[in-house]
Structure formats: structure tokens, C-alpha cells
Design a protein around this nucleic acid. Structure first.
Lengths: 230, 230
DNA sequence: AAAGTTGTGTCAGAAATATGACAAAAGGCT
DNA sequence: AGCCTTTTGTCATATTTCTGACACAACTTT
């Protein structure tokens, strides 16, 4: 399991990130100031650190310098588009940075790139008869690539990461559209339909009346993380 | 050949390190005080510097500041385990530090990490049907040279270093232009087009709609670092 | 059966990308 | 400096792709 430390003094933000990354299967810990982060880093071992630069006590740069020798990749979160800050951070050894506000899709993609660069893992998710390549944002079946659009891919990922779980429409809207429930339209239905068709999963993706949708997966074909896109 | 400068006023130690690193295939030079080191750095070019902090004449920190603009990675050797010292050095731009006494294995490991971080250790990258020569900034196919401009080359390198990975436009801009996402322009597209044409890679370099681009590479043709332009 | 939900095909607008031509900038050379 | 060449960015236009919406059919639940 990949362990990620999230360092941000704005607790709601840190927690939001944590919730989302947890759902993606990462083990997350939050620290709300530099001192706490430094302590955690000394005691536990992390595979990656998400670091907000503006911090009370000792700031992001100090922490970055402190972390550096441990050779743990750091992606730092920077509020505005201050170029100097970023250059400084990169010089101090950060692997990447992302400007707030950011889309979760992008954050996740970057996390995966950085992890792979560090050979921690490039993971594929194999489930049923397909393999999901997160980084490539593509889907394979018997070595054949199935082309999905962005929304379709995001939707598929959510379903596959929560197999045999009824997901409320509201939840799906939140995660994929990052917005509130769009009650009246048939948008979600349309996407589900497209997914069903492209994957031939009409009876895999079940409708849960008055709730939402559920991906049915037999016990012997539950999702597995693999290193190879088998 | 990787050139390493060893700066330490204790000559026996410097020489011990030199002998060992030489055996590992590094070209080593020793300097026994700050002045000598500064002179050497001015005259010759090094890929990495091992720097003892306690030095006569002018000390390690001064030298570090002096070296900094040259963008040569520095690992410093420190006797004490004082945290402040370390942070000071790291903030001054050192890549890493190692506390004396240290084991040679560890030193070598750290050297390699740092060199890799600086892309100094690799020379050629062969991928698909081409070979990238980093130092010559050129690309070969069947021994034929393909002329690329600077931006094209940079772009190609990023793509090749992240094969099968959907790279966000934003990321590409950051890496190649070192600037923010330039949402409005078609600059990136133009360069992608030129690359596709020059390399005949129109279907290798895939467009990932609403995300960016991805270089598709079959598993058996994944990039390999080589010392020779095979 | 009625009311409420969901499925599905189609479509149009919006957004994103491709592409060629051209202008601007950068670099070389005398 | 001036001139020429190459590189890079921009623009206009064409083309592609995505997405949400709608109408209406089909299905569930009560």
C-alpha cells in the first residue's frame, strides 16, 4: 500500500484530499503544520508527500530541505501562480508542483507519474476481463485498447474501485463532475449507457433503483493491482 | 565519464575516497582547501562535488554558495550530526549530505541517486525505433540522424521518459516552457504536429482529449538506457 | 394502472484539436 | 551593425470529439 503524507494547514483542504486519495486506494495521513509533518516523517515512512508551502511554525521550504535527504518525492501545492516560489521549490528538490485550485484527476495523475519515476509502482487495476491503466488513462481487454472519453474513464474508475457497492447518483456526481446533484437530467444515465455499450457490460453495471448504480463482480474476479498490464 | 571533485582538508580521507570511487569508474580530482576547490571548479567541469564543510581558508558554505550558480550537484560531508548545519547546507542548495564516518557503499549509493536525479548517468535512451542522444541532443534512427529543434527535442524527451502516460498539457508546458499553462495558444499542438511528422509517429503520439498527449509504446519496446547508441 | 425512475437513440452546441500559412523572434555569419 | 536562416509562436480555419439534453420508450414500485 502506498503511503502519502498530506501537509496543509487548511484542514478542510487536507481532509478533502485525504478522502479522495483514500478512495483511490492510497493510505493517507495528514499533518497541519511543519513541525507535525517533520515528526511524522521521522517516525513513519512515506512514499510520497504532498506539501503546501505556506505553513505555520516552520515553513514548506524548511520541511522540503529536511525531507530531501530521505529521498522521498514531494509534490508541492502552491496557491497562486507565483513562479519564484515554484522555481525555489523545484531547486530544493521537489519533484513536481501543482497550482491550487486543481482538479483531482490531475493530482492523481501527477502522483502516479511521480511514483512511477521513483519505481514505487505503476499499478494497473485488473478487474473482470479488463485492465485499467491509470496513468495512460486507457483500458485494455486481451491486449486490445478500448478508447474511453474522459468522463467515461473517470466513471469506470469509480465503479471499479467500489465493486459490489451501490453508489448513489449523488456520489457519482460529486466524484466525477465535482459538483452537486444534477437531478433532472439524464446525463449520468447516458454515460452509464455508453460505458455499458463500450465494455459490453450491460449486465455487469446494475441499476439500483432509486439509488444509483453498482458494478457486480464475482468474488474470483475482484479487482487486483498488478505491475503488469496482464 | 563522470567527473567528481572531492574537497576535504584531511588528505588521507580525500584520497581514500578517491581511490574507491576511481575503482567504481568515476574520474576523481581532489582539492584540499576551499581556494583550490574554487579554482578547479572554475577551470574544469565536474558532474558532482563531494564537499567537506570544515575547511581552512574559505569554508564549505562559502564554496557552496560559489558553486551554486553552476548547477553542479553537491553532496556535503559533515562531521557533526547537527540538524541546523544540515538544513543550512541543504537550503544553500546541496543535494544531500552524509555524516562522517560513513560507509563507502552508502556514499556510492547516494552519489548514484544524485547523478540520476541530474540525468548525468545516462547517455542514450533507445525507444521504439529511435535512439536519443542526450548529450548530443540528437536523435538517431538506423544510424540516420533526425534533426530536431530545441523545443522538439525537449518535448520528445519528456514524452519518451513517460511512455504510455497521458501527460497533461499543463505538465508539458511546465516542463518544456517552464511557465504556466498557456491555455489559449496552439503552440503545443504545433510542436506535437512537427514531431509527429518528423518522426513519422502520427499514431504513436496519441491525443488524449481534454488531457494532453501520450506516447504509446508496446511493452517490448519500452525505453532502455544504454551506454552505446545501439 | 398511475406515478415515478431509468434506458436509449439522436442531436446540436460547445469545446478541443489539427493544420497550414505566416509573423515574430532568435541565432549565425560576415 | 546588417543580412540571412532557422526556430518558434500565433492566427484563422477546418475538423473532430465530447457532452449534456431531450423525447419518448421501457421498466419498477406502489
Amino acid at each position: 500500500m502506498i503511503r502519502i503524507l498530506i501537509v496543509d494547514d487548511e484542514q478542510p483542504i487536507a481532509n478533502l484530499i485525504r478522502m479522495n486519495l483514500s478512495r483511490m486506494g492510497y493510505a493517507c495521513t495528514c499533518a497541519y503544520d511543519g513541525q507535525a509533518a517533520a515528526d511524522l516523517v521521522e517516525r513513519e515512512s512515506f512514499d510520497l508527500i504532498l506539501l503546501d508551502i505556506m505553513l505555520p511554525k516552520f515553513d514548506g521550504y524548511d520541511l522540503l530541505a529536511f525531507i530531501r535527504p530521505m529521498n522521498i518525492p514531494v509534490i508541492f501545492l502552491t496557491a497562486k501562480s507565483d513562479v519564484n516560489d515554484r522555481v525555489k521549490g523545484l531547486k530544493l528538490g521537489a519533484e513536481d508542483y501543482i497550482v491550487k485550485p486543481f482538479e483531482l484527476v490531475e493530482l492523481v495523475a501527477r502522483i502516479e507519474v511521480v511514483l512511477r519515476r521513483y519505481n514505487k509502482s505503476r499499478t494497473y487495476l485488473s478487474i473482470l476481463d479488463i485492465v485499467i491503466d491509470y496513468e495512460g488513462r486507457s483500458v485494455l481487454r486481451n491486449g486490445e485498447k478500448i478508447e474511453l472519453t474522459r468522463k467515461e474513464f473517470d466513471l469506470l474508475v469509480v465503479l471499479c474501485q467500489n465493486p459490489n457497492t451501490a453508489l448513489f447518483r449523488e456520489q457519482l456526481f460529486e466524484r466525477i463532475w465535482e459538483t452537486d446533484y444534477m437531478g433532472e437530467t439524464r446525463t449520468l444515465d447516458s454515460h452509464i449507457q455508453r460505458l455499458r455499450r463500450k465494455l459490453g457490460w450491460q449486465d455487469r453495471i446494475k441499476t439500483v433503483h432509486k439509488v444509483g448504480y453498482r458494478l457486480d463482480v464475482p468474488m474470483d474476479k475482484m479487482p487486483q493491482e498488478t505491475k503488469e498490464p496482464v
